[in-house]
Computed example of a mutant assay.
Amino acid sequence: MKRWISFILHLAMIVILTSFGSYSVTKKEFPKVPDNLRVTLETEPTVSSEFDSIRETAIAPPFLGKSYNGFKEALAFKESQGRYQVVNTLGYLGKYQFGRSTLKLMGVYDTDDFLNNASLQERVFEVNVARNKWILRRDIKRFNGKRIRGIEITESGIIAAAHLAGAGNVKKYLRSYGKKDVADAYGTTISYYMKRFGGYDVSEIHQKRNAKV
């Protein structure tokens, strides 16, 4: 009896020791990423445009605040992702997407030269701002600082909307208090540009009648 009890105790001890010896816990440890190497992706509301399909691969313009340079680079990024040699499906050209008729009004007739001349494109944009400021001078004075359908009207918003839809359509929008809110062929509205590009300082560009390059 004693032999059987001793045998059973030894067998039980062997089973217990074997169980503990074969069981182990492996904890996976992942390297900690330093805070300065963490990347946060930011997205913006999409608007119907020809360039939405390449938005994810585009490089955003540098942060320039609410300066005039910040205004024109933000507008250019929306228009063409900031690319000088773009021609869209409707025939609008360059970094700021000018139509041929608008270019002719400002004295530019050679579209090939325009597409390949970055400094000319920047000059045309500046001239167009001066031109639209003159056309809309009374509306800028009358509506600047007011709200139309929840949107604060600013000089830069008015100029951006004129770039989108033309000064005449911006006059109609303002004087109808937002009722005549036209959109371009890709669905972008005057009110969207008013809001999107409001609050920039564009005072360094002065109004000029019949401005030309």
Rank of each mutant, 00 (worst) to 15 (best):
R3S: 05
I5F: 13
I5Q: 12
S6W: 14
I8S: 15
I8Y: 15
I8C: 15
I8D: 15
L9S: 14
L9M: 07
A12E: 12
A12G: 15
M13Q: 00
M13E: 00
I14F: 15
V15T: 09
V15D: 04
I16T: 10
T18I: 06
T18Y: 10
F20N: 11
F20P: 03
Y23T: 08
S24H: 07
T26N: 04
K32P: 02
K32T: 07
K32A: 05
K32Q: 05
V33H: 02
D35Y: 13
R38T: 14
V39H: 07
E42R: 11
T46L: 15
S48V: 05
S49W: 13
E50K: 02
F51T: 00
F51S: 01
D52M: 13
D52Q: 12
R55D: 12
R55I: 11
R55T: 07
A60G: 03
P61M: 02
P61F: 03
P62Q: 07
F63P: 09
G65I: 05
G65D: 01
K66M: 03
N69V: 13
N69S: 15
K72P: 10
E73W: 01
E73V: 07
A74L: 10
A76P: 03
F77S: 08
R83V: 11
Y84T: 10
Q85P: 09
V87I: 06
N88A: 09
N88P: 04
N88L: 09
L90C: 14
L90V: 15
L93V: 04
L93K: 04
G94T: 11
K95P: 12
Y96L: 08
S101C: 09
T102R: 12
T102V: 09
K104C: 05
L105H: 13
M106C: 02
Y109Q: 02
Y109V: 03
T111I: 07
D113N: 02
F114V: 11
N116Q: 00
S119A: 11
L120P: 10
F125W: 01
E126W: 12
E126Y: 09
E126T: 14
V127E: 02
N128M: 03
V129Y: 12
A130T: 10
A130E: 11
N132W: 05
K133T: 12
D139L: 07
K141V: 13
K141H: 11
N144L: 00
K146N: 08
R147C: 05
R147P: 03
R147G: 03
I148D: 00
R149S: 04
I153D: 00
I153A: 01
S156F: 06
I159W: 01
A161V: 03
A162H: 07
A162T: 11
H163P: 12
L164E: 01
A165I: 05
G166M: 06
A167D: 09
N169W: 00
N169S: 01
V170D: 04
K171Q: 02
K171I: 08
K172E: 02
K172Q: 06
Y173D: 00
G178M: 01
D181W: 10
D181M: 13
A183G: 02
A185M: 04
A185G: 06
Y186H: 06
G187D: 04
G187Q: 08
T188V: 15
T188L: 15
I190W: 08
M194F: 03
K195D: 04
R196K: 13
F197D: 05
G198S: 02
S203W: 01
S203N: 10
E204V: 14
E204C: 14
N210H: 00
A211L: 06
K212V: 04
